[in-house]
Structures are given as C-alpha cells and as structure tokens.
Design a protein around this nucleic acid. Sequence first.
DNA 1: CCTTTGTGATAGATAATATCTATCAAGAAT
DNA 2: ATTCTTGATAGATATTATCTATCACAAAGG
Lengths: 302, 302
Amino acid sequence: MPTLRQLEYLVALAETKHFGRAAASTHVSQPTLSQQLRTLEARLGVTLVERGESPVQLTPIGRELSERARKVLIGVDDLQALARRSVSGMAGTIRFGVTPTLGPYLMPTVVAQLHRAYPDMRLYIREGIPDEQIAELRRGALDMLLAPLPIAGSDLHIEPLFREPLHLVAAPDNPLCTQSLLQKTDLSGSGVLSLDRRHHFHRQAEQICGELGAELLRDYEGTSLDSLRQMAGSGIGLAILPELYLRSEVGGEDMVRRLPIADWSATRSIAAIWRSGAAYTQTYLMVAQAIASEARNMMKAS
Amino acid sequence: MPTLRQLEYLVALAETKHFGRAAASTHVSQPTLSQQLRTLEARLGVTLVERGESPVQLTPIGRELSERARKVLIGVDDLQALARRSVSGMAGTIRFGVTPTLGPYLMPTVVAQLHRAYPDMRLYIREGIPDEQIAELRRGALDMLLAPLPIAGSDLHIEPLFREPLHLVAAPDNPLCTQSLLQKTDLSGSGVLSLDRRHHFHRQAEQICGELGAELLRDYEGTSLDSLRQMAGSGIGLAILPELYLRSEVGGEDMVRRLPIADWSATRSIAAIWRSGAAYTQTYLMVAQAIASEARNMMKAS
DNA sequence: CCTTTGTGATAGATAATATCTATCAAGAAT
DNA sequence: ATTCTTGATAGATATTATCTATCACAAAGG
C-alpha cells in the first residue's frame, strides 16, 4: 500500500515537473523525494516518471495515478477539516430516539435550529417505544433519547428537561362540556381512551383514571395521539392528550374540547437520556437544553 | 496527517466494535491497534471511541470520520487496482498529436479499437501543425505524434508506418478529365491549389508542381482539405488530395475527379513519433502498429 | 462471593521506515 | 573546457510502527 506522503510527492512532482521544487514544496530533501518516488513505483509495479527527460515528464500512467492520488489527498484533507470542525464536539450524526407521542410535535423545530447553528451536526430522529429505545441506547444503536420518566438504570445519564401538561378532552357535544368548571368527582365512571399498554402513556392514563374513578376503555386502544383525538371527537370516550400535541398543527382542538377540571395538574416529566460512559456529554447536554428551551417556548406561547 | 493504516484501524473498529477483532482483521496485535487509535485521536484532536463502554461504541464524530476514512481507503484501493491493470503499460491517457490532413480520416476508428482492447487506455487526440507539435512533444505537452516525414531530431524516436498516395484532382468539366491517360507534360502550366505554407503538405505540393512544371497558386491558400476540394470542384485550379481523405465520408469524389497520370507515384510517408527517453515505448509501438494496420486496411479496401 | 475469562491500556524493546547529509554521474549552460 | 544543475546512490540517523509482556478492570460463570 502506498503512503499518503508518497502520494503527496507524486502530486507535487506532477505539478512542478522538477524533483527539487517538488521536494521543497513537500518540505523534504530532494534525495528523499527521489527515493520515495522509486519506492512508490516499486510498490505499484508501474513506471510513473520518464527518467532521463528534461524537464521531468510523467508517463501517461503516472499522470493518471497522480490524478487519483490528488483525489485521495483531497479526501484526507476533507477528513481533517471535518475533524478540526469537530473539536468542539458539535459534529457528526447523533442517532436520536423519541416517543411518537412527543417527537413529531417538538423535534422538527429543534432539528432545524441545531443544524443552522452547527452545520456539521445532525440529529437522525427515530421514533419508537421508550422502553425499547432504552435498550437500543444501551447496546449502542442510539446515542441519545427523549423519553418520559421514570426510567431506571444506573448506566444511563438522565437529564430532566421539562414537564408537559396532560389534558382530558371530550367531544364538543359531550354534556361535560357544558359546565364551566368540573369537579374530579364529576368524571367518576367516565370511559377514557388510551394508547396500547407498551406506551408510557398508557401507564400514566391508568394512574389518572385511578385518581378520577374513571374507567380505562380496553376495547379501543389507539395507535397514535391522532387516533385518540378522532375517537374522542366521535364521542367514544374521553382522552388524555398532551399539551404540545394539542398546540401543534397536527393536533389542535377543532374536534375536541379540553375539560376544565378543578385542581387538575396532571403532567408528564420528559428527560433527555444518554449513556453514562458517553463521550461528548457537553454536546448532548447542549442538545438537551435546546430541546427544553424550545418546549418551554412552545408551551408558553398563547 | 493520519496514516492510511490508522484509517484502516478506525474502519475495522467501526465494523467490529471490538479492539481484538479489529486488530485481527488488520493483521496487527491488539495493543498496536489500541495505540494507533490513540495516536489518530491525538492527531485529529477529537475523540473517536467511547471508552469504558461495552461493547465499544464510536462517537458520532467517530462514525462520521470512519465513513470519510472508508471513502479514502476505497480511493486508495482504486488507485492500486488501476496500477495493477497498468503494469502492462496499456493504461493512462496518451496525449496524441495529429495533422488535420490525416487525423480526422484515420484516428476515430483506431481510437475506438484501442479503447475496446484496453479499457484503461485513452488517446486524447489534438490536431495541429506538425512542426509545432514536434516542439510540444519535446517539451512534454504531447506523448506521441502522427506526422508526415521528414522530421529531424536525434532526441525523437521516429517509427515509419505507411506511405499514403497523393492524387491530383480536377473539376469534372475540366478538359483534362476527358483524357483516359495523361502525360505529366500535359499538366505543364496548370494552376495547383495548396494549403498554407506552414503545412508539410504545402512543401510537398511545391515539390510536385516543380516536377510537373505546374504553378502553385498563391492567391488561394486552403485552410483545410475540404476547402481545397471545394475550390478544385469549382474549377479554380487543380488540387493535390491524399488517399485516405478521398476515401473518407467527409472527402469523397462527387465534386472532383482524380486525374489518371502516367507514372504517377506521389506519396507521403507517415510516421509515429515519441521522445527517445519515453517510458512504455512498447505501448507506443503497439499503438503505432495499430494505426499502420488500420491505414493499410483502409487503403486496401476497394 | 470468589474465581476465571475477556477486554483495552500501558511499558519497554525491537523492527521497519522515512529522512538526513555527503557525494556522485551526467547533462546543460556558459 | 569549466561550471552549474539535476536526479540518483550510499550510509547514517531519526522517527514511527509494531512487538511481547503485563496490568487494571469489568463481565461471566460457578
């Protein structure tokens, strides 16, 4: 295999057609360049230079290979340039897991912002069930994760970011919607829709229903927040929907109404998570803080 | 600057996620790979591997750079593969000079033939005045040349290839065309057209006119064989045109007629030329012989 | 919980390679 | 004919890559 230095010497000779000047431009002595060119010719098994010509001429093969060499050296220069830009850590592709109950309503803006600020960094977003994504994070298929708490694991760094309010919603013609302020007891016995049980969301819905004396409907599991909203809008039951979803273009409140309930404060805690042994944790921390900031901005705007 | 070996180690580690297996696949010991990865990180100024993780994980930057590294190594593999294919000499781009009084009527077929036989070799054809192209050959702007003889120069290898007949042509309604066999004396005093004096062709026309007692017309210098043919076809004068031109699609004899002249044997010698100190002279010789063979084939066909 | 195995890092020695200076041979320029 | 320029060769030195031996620590197994 040739060395990059040898390729440099070949390219310099192709440009200068002079052993001495090629040596000077690559900062070695002329005998070194002469010797290394010979070694390169021996390794490649071809003659690169017409000896005895004045000025020096490359052979047709030598010219062809020097063009290839130039491209290789450009590739190495690009690699080094990227490394220089990466010294801060703000580079590379971060494989980022998100729950579908949050990611689509929050991450697009954040991804665009971060890419503008750090052109060499990308978030490659992948949706999935948090528990499954935790396993993927552990085995190295993901670098970072946005997920609701709680999450257990001493080998993970958990960075709480923000709390997202959860709202109970009903169809507009539901009698509950006629009251200006509901008491929790008013909801006793109501049917509530939820996502399938693999979702964190489901468990939180179970807890809320327990508090209200409501009933978690088991015959109508939603596959997405949208299907929950549509079923709730059709009067099949109530639904618990998160704030960022309701505020998004996709969500919205044209089909359902938030129920105003006295002393209602259900929320879910969202955290960014990465492996404890990760390098570039400052980078992950910065990304996490950008997400938290955007989420707060989105929830503050009225 | 990283070394190609270090890039190999990085790519192997990205693939195996195991220092020992990466070392085995690159045929070094595990401590060597570990050390070289550390050196590479130091040179690039970035962390490529998450230490303490099990199994080994690359950082986002490490993954990005290993992709760049892979591309560089592919470039080097391609360079080596081309070198292997070039050992025979039949590779690279040969910068090939030709006279416009011959090249366009002979070289297209030869270029295609050679490229089929040797896909890694190309002839890059450039037309020009032979004397000027001889200078370009000497100073290394051309590798090879097809030109009429004589050519002087002890620093050049001259490989005579074939003789091309030259024909005197006239307009069809020229009285000379009514005779089935002309004597050279019949042409005494006739006007003959020629190319401008920089062309070898011009000098040969002068010589032929001297032999015939004809007169070289000086007010009508042609810029190409086509313009000579068209002027001759218009009755402005006679013209001397070479065999391969007359046989070509571009040339042809629809506008002019060859004059049948007793004991007519005017020809020009065509040779392939390269620098005496050139490498890969066997390649040039093979190219030259392909040209000679094609020329003979084209002139033999009736 | 203890022992064994696996993994990556470190240390010192050795092998291999790159580069140096000195000098030469040959050609070009004066 | 002499001097200068250019690329090659020789031997010495500097630098780097790789080795083996061994360590520290974590994971796996009993």
